[in-house]
Every structure is written in structure tokens, then in C-alpha cells.
């Protein structure tokens, strides 16, 4: 088997890519609600509790992080044991939607970090064969993240700039998932790009948007999934955004956060929508916080920023 991380800062297109993958080799569009929610993600509390046999809720987040590499190693063994079985085991931890043949795709919003023992939190090369990092223009991420968190856009920009940004890190209650250290938007992406434990392929949301089939084809080739062009084309058709939003409106989608008003998970599937949603000041803050990483990933700074840069020369 092969284990491929699908890593991304939140709201960067991870679910879209998973939906594309889930639609491979199908006769009809995959049910959007069949995409596993708590299963198939690195921060799954269920994976921890069921492998280690005790409640992660009794540990501090740092104590959890010390043990998380063991959890993924055990999970990998379990996947390998199931290689001959076509059916998913009855404990329901695995899901066909996240697997293509013998290639397992596992989502992660955790940055690539080392735990307090100095081991890669996600188990390094003992667990994963490779990683796909999905990145998206931070000026598009901000409004989408605000929508997801039910926060203001300024709040989202703050979180993206915070060196110790995290999901599910509240100490006063137990979040459904384990704490995920996001770091800042720049540091998250740097952590995955610069680690040397597993080969990583970077995919830009914008490229996936502009030429979905070609980009998906590249991703799958990197992951070691053999598919025909027709398969890819059909998966793209099935997963088309119209399909997504239609299904979401008809049934709701279980990965959407509990409603605080009417927000939909696929808020707006358009690359480059930031210009009319952010104030000039918000754009400036994002660019100030993340200019080097934006440039590294090929996201041009806006005219204002560019002018200043020219002046500086």
C-alpha cells in the first residue's frame, strides 16, 4: 500500500481534491456525504482512542502529540493487513472514498512539526510514502476561513498570521478532533515544503481550478495511482462545483460546521475572488505577513504592494 498525506491549510481546496479522488472509477457522482469526516484525517480522535485503547481526552495536547506517531504507525499496519480485503472493516474507521486501489489518501491540517520528543508528529517516512500540499492564495483563504469559523475577516487574517495558530486547541472542553497546530499560513506551507522526510508535491488551488483534469492527472501520477484520461475527465465532471453545491443544498454536507446562520461549505468555488471581498487594508496585512511565501508559491502581490517595492529599489 501507499500512504499519501493530503495536507493543506484549512479552506485551501482539500475537500475538493478529496471529492475528485472519491469520484475516480465511479459510475455516478459520489455522494458528497460519503466523504469521511472524522475518519481519514490525521487529527481524528477516534483513530487515537481506538488504536491506543484509552481516551485521548485524558491527556494534554502535548502528551497526545508524543503518542501520535505511534497511532499512524498502527494505522498503517492496519491498512496493510486489510490489503486483501475488499470490504472495509466493521469498525468503520476506513472508508473507500479515501482510497484508490492500494493508495490511501489521508487529510491533514496539521503542519509538519516534530513532537516534544523530536519525532515527526505525523510519523515521518515510517508512515507516509509522500505528501501532496494544496495551497491557495491567502487573500482567498481569508474570507473563506472567516466564513468557516464564523469569525470576521480580520479575525481570519489574524489567525493566518499567528505563529501558534491552531484548530481544536481549547482547554475547557473537548473538541471532536485532536488539536491541530496550523502555525501561520506561511509557516504551515513552509513546514510541508521544507521537510525532508517524505517527497512532497505542491498543488495550487488556482491551477486545479483553471485546468482541473491536467492538474488532477499530475497529482495522481505523483501519488502512484494509475488512471486513464477518461477516468480523470469523468471524475472532474462528477465533482464539478455545480454538482457540489447542488448536492449540498439538497442534503446539506456533514463536514460543514454547525450552522450559525446560513453558511454553506463550498462558499464560493472561484479562484481569485478576493479583490471584492477584502478591504485594501486587509490585503495589505496579508501581503505584509506572507509576502515571501506568496512569492515562493507564485502569488503576485497587489499593485499597491508592488509599487512600494519598486519605490524601495
Amino acid at each position: 500500500m501507499r500512504w499519501i498525506w493530503l495536507a493543506s491549510y484549512p479552506k485551501s481546496g482539500n475537500t475538493w481534491l478529496r471529492l475528485l479522488i472519491a469520484n475516480l472509477g465511479r459510475e455516478e457522482p459520489a455522494d458528497i456525504n460519503a466523504i469521511p469526516e472524522s475518519a481519514g484525517i490525521a487529527s481524528s480522535r477516534e483513530w487515537f482512542d481506538s488504536s491506543m485503547l484509552f481516551a485521548s481526552g485524558l491527556l494534554t495536547y502535548d502528551e497526545c502529540d508524543r503518542l501520535r506517531p505511534m497511532v499512524y504507525e498502527a494505522k498503517r499496519e492496519e491498512f496493510e493487513d486489510c490489503v486483501d480485503l475488499d470490504e472495509d472493516n466493521e469498525e468503520g474507521g476506513d472508508d473507500v472514498a479515501s482510497r484508490v486501489g492500494q493508495v490511501h489518501f489521508v487529510k491533514s491540517h496539521d503542519a509538519w512539526t516534530v513532537n516534544p520528543d523530536g519525532r515527526p508528529l505525523l510519523g515521518g517516512s515510517r508512515v507516509a510514502d509522500a505528501a501532496i500540499l494544496i495551497v491557495r492564495d491567502p487573500r482567498d483563504v481569508a474570507p473563506s476561513l472567516a466564513n468557516h469559523n464564523g469569525s470576521t475577516i480580520d479575525g481570519a487574517v489574524d489567525l493566518m498570521g499567528q505563529q501558534d495558530g491552531a484548530f481544536c486547541g481549547q482547554p475547557r472542553r473537548q473538541a471532536i478532533q485532536l488539536r491541530q497546530q496550523l502555525l501561520s499560513w506561511s509557516a504551515f506551507n513552509a513546514s510541508w515544503l521544507d521537510q525532508r522526510d517524505v517527497p512532497v508535491q505542491c498543488v495550487r488551488y488556482e491551477d486545479l481550478y483553471t485546468d482541473t483534469a491536467a492538474t488532477l492527472g499530475k497529482v495522481l501520477a505523483f501519488a502512484g495511482v494509475e488512471v486513464s484520461e477518461e477516468d480523470v475527465a469523468r471524475a472532474v465532471r462528477f465533482a464539478a462545483f455545480s454538482e457540489l453545491t447542488a448536492q449540498e443544498q439538497a442534503k446539506g454536507f456533514r463536514e460543514a460546521p454547525p450552522s450559525r446562520g446560513k453558511r454553506s461549505f463550498f462558499r464560493r468555488g472561484i479562484a481569485g475572488g478576493w479583490a471584492d471581498e477584502l478591504t485594501a487594508e486587509q490585503v495589505e496585512r496579508i501581503e505584509q505577513d506572507h509576502a515571501p511565501m506568496m512569492e515562493r508559491l507564485g502569488y503576485a502581490l497587489s499593485a499597491a504592494g508592488a509599487t512600494e517595492e519598486r519605490r524601495a529599489e
Binding site: 454536507f253 456533514r254 460546521p257 454547525p258
Partner: peptide
């Protein structure tokens, strides 16, 4: 008398 599986109310539930 009964066993209830707890689910959070969120789409599609």
C-alpha cells in the same frame, strides 16, 4: 429500554 446513538445536528442530519 432504549439505546440512543448521539449525533450532532448538522447537515444532513
Amino acid at each position: 429500554a432504549a439505546i440512543y446513538a448521539l449525533r450532532e445536528q448538522r447537515p444532513p442530519h
